[in-house]
Design a protein around this nucleic acid. Structure first.
Lengths: 158, 158
DNA sequence: TTACCAACGTTGGCGCTACCAACAAATAGG
DNA sequence: CCTATTTGTTGGTAGCGCCAACGTTGGTAA
């Protein structure tokens, strides 16, 4: 049976939070699948993009800039180091931290991943016009700021 | 440090799928917390809303109408039965299935949960005007249909 | 009448994600 | 010298979405 033929309770279907999470799951899955075909994960993309934008930096800094947990940054860098897309070296001026550097292999890999993500997202958001995409991004951006401030107001829970 | 002070790589920040999943996580978490305060879960709400809209029905039917997996429907009904908000009886005409019925306690509980969800969502989406909310819902609805059709086209992957 | 298939409900489980705590090493500041 | 904090790593948890297998039941075709 076509799932779009099934009648949903109006009270249930009227919940924007349910709609939002359903769409996010669908979009996330399709972009994750696109990255998986290249043996990549979105955290890999986040790390590589951040290194290209801001240069070599510590894992803690990468965690702060990407919003990815420090332990997940370790896992991502482990993989990226194996792939030779980044290098990892102890900071000689502060041995608590490693300095992660994008390699030229990593530069090329980032281009590849960016292209794949671009196409995956174009497909995922295809029904929306450019104007609508801009509106969606604007609204979601404001919602994100709103929730970040709410978390800050709720006794700084991170 | 205020996380909003941290500069994000433009290439990373320009990914709408990342923004969408971040906002969905924030909104989902805040509505889940609101329901948790009433010892409820969104699947409970989905089941109760569906029973009120369409009357007594089987667990399989509830699964199809809500999109919740059959095994998760079992868990939800187990709890709702303990709370006496639904009753569960074997269908005398087809003993393969149970018939789930909303009780009067369940009617009241649904009102309570609907109120809490309403307020939680009003808070979660507060930065958006009513016109913007309508636009957001329209766009997300079209995206959801698009992805449902894509799944159908990809050899019926469920 | 029998064999086969599908549906239903349940159980147990998997994989992923987001996140956390604990620890050791290192650094900064008083 | 001591205390507090930072960094990176490891191991883990909770929740979610989803799946497979099983036993029971009902329907259908041969």
């Amino acid at each position: 049976m076509d799932p779009t033929d099934i009648e949903i309770a109006p009270l249930l279907d009227a919940q924007p939070s349910r709609l939002l999470s359903q769409v996010a799951l669908m979009v996330t899955r399709s972009t994750a699948q696109a990255l998986e075909r290249l043996d990549a994960h979105r955290n890999h993309f986040a790390v590589l993009a951040t290194l290209r934008a801001f240069g070599p930096q510590s894992q803690a800094e990468l965690s702060r800039r990407t919003g990815v947990d420090r332990s997940d940054i370790v896992a991502a860098i482990d993989q990226l180091e194996r792939d030779k897309t980044v290098s990892r070296a102890v900071d000689p001026t502060d041995r608590r931290q490693n300095i992660i550097t994008l390699t030229s292999v990593g530069e090329a890999r980032l281009e590849e991943l960016a292209g794949v993500l671009e196409r995956a997202q174009a497909a995922a958001f295809a029904p929306l016009s450019q104007t609508e995409m801009a509106d969606l991004v604007s609204m979601l951006g404001r919602l994100r700021e709103h929730h970040r401030r709410r978390v800050g107001d709720d006794a700084g829970t991170s």
